[in-house]
Design a binder for these strands. Sequence first.
DNA 1: GACTCGGGTTACCGCTAGTAACATCGCACC
DNA 2: GGTGCGATGTTACTAGCGGTAACCCGAGTC
Lengths: 214, 214
Amino acid sequence: MDTTQRTEQQRSADRRRRELLEAADRVVLRDGPQASMNAIAAEAGITKPILYRHFGDKGGLYAALAKRHTDALLASLRAALDAPVDRRERVESTLDTYLAAIEARPQVYRFLMHPAEGSTGGDQGFDVGKHSAPLLRRMGEELAQVIEERVDLGPESQRLARVWGHGIVGMMHAAGDWWLGERPCSRADLVRSLADLLWGRLAAAGDRVGGPGF
Amino acid sequence: MDTTQRTEQQRSADRRRRELLEAADRVVLRDGPQASMNAIAAEAGITKPILYRHFGDKGGLYAALAKRHTDALLASLRAALDAPVDRRERVESTLDTYLAAIEARPQVYRFLMHPAEGSTGGDQGFDVGKHSAPLLRRMGEELAQVIEERVDLGPESQRLARVWGHGIVGMMHAAGDWWLGERPCSRADLVRSLADLLWGRLAAAGDRVGGPGF
DNA sequence: GACTCGGGTTACCGCTAGTAACATCGCACC
DNA sequence: GGTGCGATGTTACTAGCGGTAACCCGAGTC
């Protein structure tokens, strides 16, 4: 009996937690990452201390929020990464999946990338250096693993795969961030250009003639 | 007389401003990006309102601070980028310059990349989306310009150069960030691995045999 | 000597994250 | 059927933040 009762309570608590997260989501999407705990509590129809009972502190809430979105994005990326097509096509479709996601929900994306974990008093939020962008790290590790599984890189394969994983993710992220702000071209163009870069087109291109000097 | 007097005052003000920036620098390097205006004022031996008279608001101070470091870093990168050697060597030395800089002064680097412009009351700091990482943007544009000047990319050269500029900078940044945290290999190894990636080694590598499934 | 004017300070506002203390409802247990 | 107890919720508070208004004082000028 004790156990069933416990699970009963836990279920209720979990549902509560999910409701709170959804309210927080709405507020963060509306107000950006600097949404206040007061605002979130109000949106959920309750008051602050309840939020703190559930999530510890603001960092905890934001981490829980970020985890949901990160998991979702990673799942769709994994699908693109696992498709049984040739490598170039896989790379392009993964890039496109990521870009489509940030294009569809830029607010979510900004929240994940720039948590802006302000906090003034006390400040025992999460550490700046270590948790600043967990999404990038997770994507990098994930990609590293796929690369190492799938590509034959010789003796130093593990190190190379990890460097490349993080490097490619960073490339995708920075280019996406810039593209989202300026929209200088279509998504397909961007995908193709980035894939070209990874395919060594920079190295293969010739020097420009008639350039400045020399 | 009026003009000389004016320049006299302006000089004094500029010197003051530089002193304040140096004090701010010390505090930010010690306390991280969430250093408070009070702390900075105290370090400079004065009180808050003076800071606000000089820099407007916290965003202004941080922007001024960031500009100094950004300019310095960009100058050394430009030197590496302009060296009259072959492309691969130039790419490697630019990567190495950047990595050496963030390795030598990780606190500065963290400040530049993760401004964490918290702020609670009033919050009219600088806008999150637009100024979140000006260093990355500036580096991306700079690199794009160099690429377009130096490399022959055919008809779409301008677009390609910009995409690649931001992409490569992002790759460098993310890989550097990860490397700085985990130190999984030497700087030279990292530089070589990244250059290999840009040189198309990922595309050239064969599929792994005996991998999972298939 | 009155008068402005730039550099400086004190004292405050409104806001934030986070907490302590009190109220209340449901429910098992004797 | 009363009774303790634990979860849920509230009000009222603290400490500290960014930012500002008001005053203050010494140096130069007529």
